[in-house]
Amino acid sequence: MAASAATYKERQFLAVIGDEDSVTGLLLAGIGHVTEPPESQRNFLVVDSKTETSEIERAFQNFTQERKDIAVLLINQHIAERIRHSVDTFADPFPAVLEIPSKDHPYDPEKDSVLKRVRRLFGE
């Protein structure tokens, strides 16, 4: 897979799908970006218990497929669980999908799609 320069030279933002606390914290770090007014796309999505799975799915597709300026997509692990299928089937190198722990849900390496692949490669 030849990752040509054009595919990732434009990518300079991080995106988040997470619960309110994670998103707040990451926004404080300064990763939040809203595109120019006509579309005004945010690069973060706050998910709470009332958020529909289809909405998460749509945001995930948007960040991974449609937007070409996102280099890394951070997603809370418990949210990734809800759209596990999409996360597991997404295998492109860009953007890098990273599962992060949240405050209420400690990190479980067993569920991480990349770590699962690592484990499988070493036959564990």
């Binding site: 990732y8 933002f13 998103v23 770090a29 990763i31 939040g32 970006h33 945010r42 973060f44």
Partner: peptide, 21 residues
Amino acid sequence: DIGYQIQESAKQARFRVRAKQ
């Protein structure tokens, strides 16, 4: 809760990444 305020005031990314080979 400052979450809402922060989400609304986020406009431009300060923290960005650059890809190198």
